[in-house]
């Protein structure tokens, strides 16, 4: 079962040109990303906005081609997939977009929106089509009778439920959730997170859960990747990452979760991150360079290697490579 990953990314790079008139050489949204996701083991991706998380979501779901590197979904190379194979990819992976409301056509009913994936990727037609839409709506906590309504008639939480329903209607095996609760009132976030947990259990789903707040990943991510400026700076089993973050960036990111509890500890890493960065990182430099409290003289000139800290726990940090004890002490 776990022999073939559901999704496998190998050395993915994706760059975007700058807007006209801005001569800064463009943006590298993803910089040499490799990861694989096996069935039954949900992963989390955490990082600030601008880290490349959404670009990664679009790449995993084969909506965006990487500039270089390969994406394999259930063994199919998305870059060379035939029409038929692409349809198989679309059935295997679903995406819940960050802007849930914006991902619905305002002029079409919810039934139309939810049935479109059925029309495109399944043979479900006629009365069965409407029944399937009704069933999935009930399953995500809405009423089947609401399918004749338009997106603007739903609240933020209900729209998120609809977006989840649309992603699930073709019974995918993997669902990418791009910031599924960040746009919602805190009072209804728990409703959605609990629903996602239940659905994962009932439908044997594997998630790629993307968030800027690590606490959102808490009960669902088995393994978590920390992204910054298009790179993965640390990856570890989620509990281990929370308990023993190694990368100085991860430490500062997790400190921020203290915002929820009302007080933010003023760690050196955090105060440093508040300082504006003067220039974008070069390929050779660590992207956290210039901000990092544990920076060494080589950090700005040497691309940091990935160091294995423990089984399945890796950190991409030169300071850690040179003096693991010192970094661990600063992080603990």
């Amino acid at each position: 079962m776990a022999d073939r990953p559901l999704v496998e990314l190998v050395s993915i790079t994706r760059s975007f040109p700058s807007p006209r008139g801005v001569t800064d050489g463009g943006t590298v949204a993803l910089d040499d990303i490799s990861m694989s996701v096996v069935a039954g083991e949900s992963v989390g991706i955490v990082g600030d906005s601008g880290a490349g998380k959404s670009t990664l979501a679009w790449t995993i779901t084969a909506l965006l081609r990487p500039t270089s590197g390969s994406v394999r979904v259930d063994g199919i190379d998305a870059g060379r997939a035939s029409r038929r194979e692409m349809a198989a990819i679309r059935r295997t992976v679903g995406l819940v977009f960050q802007d849930a409301l914006g991902s619905f056509n305002p002029q079409r009913t919810v039934e139309h929106a939810l049935a479109t994936p059925l029309d495109n990727f399944t043979s479900v037609r006629g009365p069965e089509r409407r029944r399937t839409v009704g069933q999935i709506m009930e399953r995500v906590g809405l009423r089947a009778s609401q399918m004749t309504r338009y997106p603007h008639e739903f609240s933020g939480g209900q729209i998120q439920r609809l977006a989840i329903a649309r992603a699930l209607i073709t019974r995918p095996r993997l669902v990418v959730l791009d910031e599924p609760v960040s746009a919602l009132d805190v009072s209804i976030r728990a409703q959605i997170l609990n629903l996602l947990r239940d659905l994962a259990h009932d439908y044997h789903l594997t998630y790629v859960l993307i968030a800027s707040d690590a606490t959102v990943l808490e009960h669902m991510s088995a393994r978590t990747f920390v992204m910054y400026a298009g790179r993965i700076l640390e990856r570890a089993p989620h509990r281990e990452l929370i308990a023993q973050p190694r990368h100085p960036y991860t430490v500062s990111l997790l400190d921020l979760s203290g915002l929820r509890a009302g007080d933010v500890a003023s760690t050196p890493a955090l105060s440093a991150r508040r300082a504006p960065r003067s220039s974008r990182p070069t390929w050779e430099a660590c992207p956290f360079c210039g901000i990092c409290p544990l920076e060494t003289s080589r950090c700005s000139t040497t691309r940091p290697p990935e160091i294995l800290v423990a089984a399945d726990h890796a950190v991409t940090c030169l300071a850690y490579a040179e003096a693991p004890e010192a970094v661990a002490a600063a992080g603990g």
């Binding site: 609240s155 939480g157 209900q158 805190v186 009072s187 209804i188 976030r189 728990a190 409703q191 997170l193 609990n194 947990r197 606490t215 808490e218 009960h219 929820r260 509890a261």
Partner: peptide, 22 residues
């Protein structure tokens, strides 16, 4: 309820959830 939601309190093995809507 707002406070419990904000702190992401647990209720058993699930997140505390304020039921219903406004």
């Amino acid at each position: 309820a707002l406070l419990a939601s904000s702190e992401q309190r647990m209720q058993g093995d699930r997140l505390y959830e304020l039921p219903g809507h406004t």
